[in-house]
């Protein structure tokens, strides 16, 4: 049954002038699960991610979202269809306040985004919902703070709040814990588990340990291809996976 899979890729390939960043990947993400895409540096995780979110065009292959072919769709339409991504570098609008950041995501629903003759006070009706979202990720005290002044972990939280504002069916998180301390990692992991309720999450991670108890399924990529797939238990014992990871400087 196709409905079980929210994302399916077939034969997905991205070639950069003879170099295959992603080669014939057939990834399937089950609805309602947290799915992690991991692998050593240069394994093609981020390329794969950019292909699925349409920020890159594949050289070959197909991508199905809810059974619909989105291989040639543009990134904005993919987002409108309910599949919203985050970025490796925390993607906020730095010189806008936390409230404004979240509001920009909410305002698309008003349908007035091209109205240049209307006062921006007309957006104030969204403030209540924006504050709720800020509270949901634990940054309620910072709504008037410009995003640039937030700590790294809070920027990540803001990014998630902004993403949640779109009420996505599916969240794609690009290394949500990159560059974080232990404390922040735990906080964001809790947050991810929280927001994954009733949604599907596909996350890219570098570190196998981080996703161990967070994800239902783990796909390991190496040199642009799928090396192994399964739960943490089976994947972490796979000799090929161990070799791929030992082959890099990663401990």
């Amino acid at each position: 049954m196709t409905d079980d899979w929210i994302i399916q890729t077939q034969d997905l390939t991205k070639e950069f002038k003879g170099f295959f960043a992603v080669r014939e990947v057939g990834l399937k993400v089950r609805r309602g699960t947290i799915h992690a895409l991991i692998g050593p540096n240069g394994a093609g995780k981020t390329t794969c991610f950019n292909l699925i979110t349409k920020f890159l065009q594949p050289s070959k292959g197909r991508i199905l979202y809810n059974g619909r072919d989105i291989t040639r769709a543009d990134p904005a339409s993919v987002a409108r269809a309910g599949m919203v991504r985050s970025f490796q570098i925390s993607a906020v609008f730095p010189h806008m306040t936390v409230l404004e950041n979240i509001r920009v995501a909410l305002q698309r629903g008003l349908g007035t985004s091209f109205h240049f003759w209307r006062s921006d006070q007309s957006l104030d009706v969204l403030n209540g919902r924006a504050r709720e979202l800020a509270a949901a990720v634990g940054i309620a005290d910072f709504v008037e703070t410009p995003a640039v002044e937030l700590s790294y972990g809070r920027k990540r939280a803001l990014e998630i709040a902004t993403t949640l504002a779109l009420e996505p069916e599916m969240l794609l998180l690009d290394e949500p814990m990159a560059g974080m301390g232990r404390e922040d990692i735990d906080r964001i992991a809790r947050l991810i588990r929280e927001v994954a309720k009733g949604r599907t999450v596909l996350m890219v991670e570098h570190n196998l340990a981080v996703v161990a108890d967070l994800s239902d399924t783990i796909t390991v990529l190496a040199r642009g291809q799928i090396l192994a797939e399964g739960d943490y238990h089976s994947v972490s014992r796979d000799p090929q996976v161990i070799e791929a990871y030992m082959g890099t400087a990663h401990g």
């Binding site: 987002a79 985050s86 305002q107 698309r108 902004t162």
Partner: peptide, 30 residues
């Protein structure tokens, strides 16, 4: 007026971080 409008907010978002604005579903080219 245009700068301080819903339209201006989206323009600000595009100027600050265009890929993010796209990922929020805005067709930024328009």
């Amino acid at each position: 007026r245009a700068i301080h409008s819903p339209f201006g907010q989206v323009l600000a978002a595009i100027r600050e971080n265009e890929p993010r604005a796209i990922s929020l579903g805005y067709r930024t080219e328009r």
